[in-house]
Design a protein around this nucleic acid. Sequence first.
DNA 1: TATGAATGAGATTTCATTCAT
DNA 2: GATGAATGAAATCTCATTCAT
Lengths: 215, 215, 215, 215
Amino acid sequence: MRERDNSARSAERGSPPVAKGARTAAKFRHAAQQVFARQGYLHARIEDIAKEAELSSASFYNYYDSKADVLAALAREFHEDASRDIAIPYQEGLPHEEAVRQAITIFWTTYRDRLGALSGVFQASMIDEDFLHQWRLVRAEALRFISSGIAAAQREGYCPGLDRAYAASALSSMLEHFCYVWLYQGGDAEDSVCDEKRAIDALVNVWYRSIYWRA
Amino acid sequence: MRERDNSARSAERGSPPVAKGARTAAKFRHAAQQVFARQGYLHARIEDIAKEAELSSASFYNYYDSKADVLAALAREFHEDASRDIAIPYQEGLPHEEAVRQAITIFWTTYRDRLGALSGVFQASMIDEDFLHQWRLVRAEALRFISSGIAAAQREGYCPGLDRAYAASALSSMLEHFCYVWLYQGGDAEDSVCDEKRAIDALVNVWYRSIYWRA
Amino acid sequence: MRERDNSARSAERGSPPVAKGARTAAKFRHAAQQVFARQGYLHARIEDIAKEAELSSASFYNYYDSKADVLAALAREFHEDASRDIAIPYQEGLPHEEAVRQAITIFWTTYRDRLGALSGVFQASMIDEDFLHQWRLVRAEALRFISSGIAAAQREGYCPGLDRAYAASALSSMLEHFCYVWLYQGGDAEDSVCDEKRAIDALVNVWYRSIYWRA
Amino acid sequence: MRERDNSARSAERGSPPVAKGARTAAKFRHAAQQVFARQGYLHARIEDIAKEAELSSASFYNYYDSKADVLAALAREFHEDASRDIAIPYQEGLPHEEAVRQAITIFWTTYRDRLGALSGVFQASMIDEDFLHQWRLVRAEALRFISSGIAAAQREGYCPGLDRAYAASALSSMLEHFCYVWLYQGGDAEDSVCDEKRAIDALVNVWYRSIYWRA
DNA sequence: TATGAATGAGATTTCATTCAT
DNA sequence: GATGAATGAAATCTCATTCAT
């Protein structure tokens, strides 16, 4: 990972705020995202990304060290944006089910918009120990978030005795994989068409009911 | 897929009940299972499987056409056994929660025992359209099974209005991925140790509560 | 090349004149001939020959050292028979054209009946120096035969000055290749059907006219 | 077949008239031609061609897809040039024998100069259905050409009743195979030395006499 | 004699990555 | 900065051939 920071240089010279180098790097990032979403991370070749970016693959190496590197950049980008957005709902004191719906909807929407990055990271963690590590860090945050949600519910008397760590892990698994299946893989069957509203409803239902119950 | 079936001929000739060829094929299958579980399907080379089986990689091709082929054989093996076992619980009229626990426990146990096969198929379906197709067929059965469980619950007045197809898809996603994370990937964190009982408890809780609720 | 000669042993033991070993060798020879004619020598695998013979490929090596070896045996077989037959016509004092026709017809018929051996030797001499050598010996005989025919014609005043060696080579090339094209390759076009009579007529015409002319 | 065409682009940019890529492709083509002529198409390995071209075999694949592909390119090259040259003689109204001699001489010369391509295609059509098909197309043109020559002769009263299709096929077989034997295989015997003039004379004689005769 | 089983030795092909321009 | 071109390093797969039974 070694994206160049040209900002200082640009400032000195009075060039536009986004220097050419940064723009090219972004072009490669964008192209990678497209290609990952289309062909999958594992099948993507540097050549494919370069072609998508309308640049040469040799040029790619001026900005990123490898396919893994550009994916890491996409992941960081995603992570920065997402950690902002995902926290919003609970600041508003919505009814529980509504709060769950908002959180899930945001996750779903983000997954869809960042399909290349997210499916990419998921696939990459299958062959790359480093990525598994990265992914776990990202996941850890989600788990803390879910877990604290369960804790809050429990303080209100819901789901007594529910094992927060494993339950959070299970719900996170569901969310992640359901999104992967429906947004990346195209659903449960060859010809599935996804009805987003019903898909999210089902997730909300499972999530909400599995937490907000009393003995 | 072209495993040899020597059984008929061996029987005629009174040769040992399990012919050598069949044993070698099994040896390769077993070796593949080990290697897939250890290094992952995507990283496994034919050479690795052969080394594990203490045979040459040329010999491998006497029994299977490719890495995908031996995985397919493992998957078939799993599928045959699993479709027998998984159906048992409901024949016994257990209380709902217990029935759920049994089904989940069986899935968990099977996943653990067949780790190479199941994580292998999961990984393979990311790079191989054919495997995705196969995997969908397997998954379809699980979905029908879950879905009919929900339907039965609904006939008893539980979870009215729950979207069976998507809910089944979500629960299946949870189960699959949770098992993958804890049994193959080693858990949510670098140093996780899995407490099987608590893990299963959490799954059962989510599953049970998300279905067996009333308006 | 090392076909076994079991005749002595069979005699001793009073077994049938053609011992089992010789019969098996013949079976392989026959199978090879079939396979060469069907798939071509270059594409034929020992396995294919064994399958055709309904024996194992390991067994093959009890009789022949290699694919080249069995082809050499077929070639020898052909050669022994052919050198007998081909000489006949000129013993009868037919009119020239009729003699040519008979010689060509015999070649054509033999080629058709020994398709595997002849197309095989032809193909083999493209990759195997030894075979090229063998083939040249066979060809040399044909060339001598043709050449002496031209010499005889010249003694009668025909085709004065015709270069016997090269002309014989040219006519032999024509005969060989024409037979290869029509009998092995299936003719000049994808869907050619061969009218044997017309094919032979054309050969006879070219051959006869190119020799039996006067200044 | 996927040679690069950089000509347009190079022209725009004013780069050297023959871009490096095109020169490398040509280098491989030339190397292949040499290797085919020396070892034969069937024995040639990509590695050999690369070594001859003083490049790596990986590099080969930047220009051609396979051994068959580079041969196809050579064949195309030959065909384009040849179809131009071969038609010339008849435009000049020469005496028949002289016209035949010129056509044959051109064929012979071309075969010698393009030995790698022509012997290559000849050999390739023995193991590759696609090549047989290609070869037949090339051959079909030659056959039409010969056939129309015979037809013209017949209109002048020569060779009445000669079957044009089969006679053309026979003459074409002779020409092809005679050239193959003398130019590629080194003649009828181990130590043959080819006297080109006599070789061509013999061909001309056979060809001319087999067409230009009267009842 | 016959064969099931095992393997060594190769050839093809792909791709990430480097480098000279 | 950008790129055309070149390549090292692998992995897959095939098949003739051997050998123990």
